[in-house]
Design a binder for these strands. Structure first.
Lengths: 340, 340
DNA sequence: GATAAAAAGATTTACGTACCTCATAACTGT
DNA sequence: ACAGTTATGAGGTACGTAAATCTTTTTATC
């Protein structure tokens, strides 16, 4: 016999098609024991819902919007182009995907943008932003309108999001530390940590993880006070320059955030042997790897992040399950040799 | 206006629905200039084919089979369970995915299995096997029957496959070498390379890449003659044991293939400081990382490999495009700290 | 046992594409 | 101008589910 359909469920369970539909789509108006009859029949005949038919019948088109901070770091440019690319592909699935920028570090601007998206009736929102009380409330309102919400890149730990899509940044910091510590060997030295903002959840977690493992496994190195450079290349260049002048025994640098162009400028001119671990493969960091200025770049596949966020929002809309293994974003370790 | 359909194309191009269908599905019987009228109309109104409706209307169910060598290495067990898991998920897309084992290193057994699958009329085959002339011919015959063929894990360079799905093993070997060389520092030492089989394309490529980079960047280390242990743990244990007794200054080991249980046995009992780089996260290698016996494990996400192979075979069947960025399998670097 | 409410049945339409058949129109080369 | 060929038109059915409406049965409450 060929693939069983809803009609077969109805026949097998001795109920009508309408009841099967009510059960399948979790609509009200079915007694518990009838639900059981139906689900038993489903298991019995091995029914699997035909996704193609379902999404054809379900007329609704979905609109998903990525809300990210304004700015022109190469990371953000890359994210934007990835979202656009994924958007083109998703059209075939009656799904539009777009991106809007909001001024960074301006909770009110972010919130009013979210309100607007709520008004417009989008199906889901993917947010990259630091958590604030205002944002938490705005997300709560979105969820009340049955709009899916996912946090991307940087987690929103105490908001009512559907899920966080991004790497485990604590583990990323530990990985950075392990690799940097291993390559530096036994001889004592100083290590410089350059961060973006102490407000960004992802940066905080990375530093925490890095500090943990350095203290545990590489205590012979001195971790210098963290430089906070606001993801700005000029700041990085100036501040790292000063730090290197002030400290003669710096052997490693961990660059937690953006602004790597500044780091390359400082380290590139001297024929330095300082080992650098940074985040995110961009035009800058890619070249730095090729030039042996950076040793390792920790990466999260943005294409994966965006596709995953879309899949999760879509699943949330249609009450489907997600495949956890597929949605886990991996901490990738990029060296010169596996740079694709 | 809402989303354009085939009817809109027909109206806009001034042709019938049947002609639009012939163009869309590349069926014969349309003049070149009519094709142009239609494709112009498609671009004009921004038509995008509705995948859900298409695959519903296209009645055909697909069957994809993974053909892998028989054996009970944990790598193969993992692959098998991943295929099974993906198979369950794919049922919702009218797609069955299964796995068959064939005796390893037996070209004739492999070929007759492929013949049988061809008879059965499967839609696509994913093959993990070393390339032989017989296999090449068998693949050619499959392609003549319009059956999709992909190579997984180990490439089949000169066969008429649709695509290779797996990591770039040359780059993987180079990555292994870079990480091992970096952690060993400047002091001279000996390095042991343990391979599976010299016949497997993937192992050969890895060793080649490893040798390249050691010669280029870490010439102060002596690479000992490669141990060929046929992916067998007992062989590895015995042969590595002998090698370590014979050579007093071994500082690093590169394990190219399977049989890592043997390596762990040898290195685990002595409180050794030998740095080990291996391939594939399994129960064994995972524990070895946690116990600080292995320094790095190079990994390819098998879930990704299998899903990717299925997507590619499906695309080949339905004359769709693949998204190259999504199908690229990355060389993942796993250390204790980013072990998920 | 009457009444209202809840649960279930019956039936229908719609979604957008693939694919089929048969008829007719438009081109070929002679 | 002719037959022979190739292009195109017209119209239909099918896919499996969602969702809606309206009717009938069951259940709960008094």
């Amino acid at each position: 016999m060929s693939r069983p359909t809803v009609h077969d469920i109805a026949k097998n369970a001795g109920v009508s098609l309408a009841t099967v539909d009510r059960v399948l789509n979790k609509r009200p108006g079915v007694r518990a024991k009838t639900i059981k009859r139906v689900t038993d029949a489903i298991n019995d005949i091995g029914y699997v819902r035909d996704m193609a038919a379902a999404s054809l019948a379900r007329q609704k088109d979905s609109e998903f919007v990525f809300v990210v901070p304004d700015g022109s770091t190469s990371f953000l440019r890359k994210l934007s182009s990835v979202v656009q690319e994924v958007g083109v592909r998703m059209l075939a699935d009656r799904t539009s995907v777009s991106l809007v920028s909001v001024p960074p570090n301006d909770p009110n601007a972010l919130v009013s943008q979210l309100e607007e998206l709520g008004q417009r009736g989008v199906s889901g929102v993917a947010i990259m932003a630091p958590e604030t009380p205002q944002l938490r409330d705005a997300i709560k309102r979105l969820k009340q309108q049955e709009i899916s919400v996912v946090a991307i890149i940087s987690d929103l730990p105490s908001s009512e999001k559907d899920q966080f899509v991004g790497i485990n940044n604590l583990a990323a910091g530990r990985t950075a530390g392990l690799l940097l510590g291993s390559v530096l060997g036994q001889e004592a030295g100083q290590i410089l940590v350059v961060s973006g903002s102490m407000l960004a959840q992802d940066h905080v977690q990375r530093r925490l993880g890095f500090d943990q493992i350095m203290a545990e496994q590489f205590p012979h190195h001195e971790i210098l006070p963290t430089i906070e450079a606001w993801d700005n290349a000029d700041n990085v260049e100036r501040m790292v320059g000063h730090a290197l002048a002030a400290h003669q025994n710096v052997k490693g640098v961990y660059s937690v955030g953006a602004g790597n162009a500044g780091l390359v400028k400082v380290l590139g001119k001297s024929d330095s042997t300082i080992k650098v671990v940074a985040h995110d493969v961009t035009a800058i960091s890619r070249q730095a790897l090729l030039d042996d200025i950076f040793y390792v770049v920790i990466e999260q596949d943005l294409g994966h992040v965006v596709r995953s966020a879309v899949r999760i929002m879509k699943a949330s809309q249609n009450m489907l399950e997600v495949i956890p293994a597929q949605e886990k974003i991996r901490i990738e370790v990029i060296v010169k040799e596996n740079l694709s």
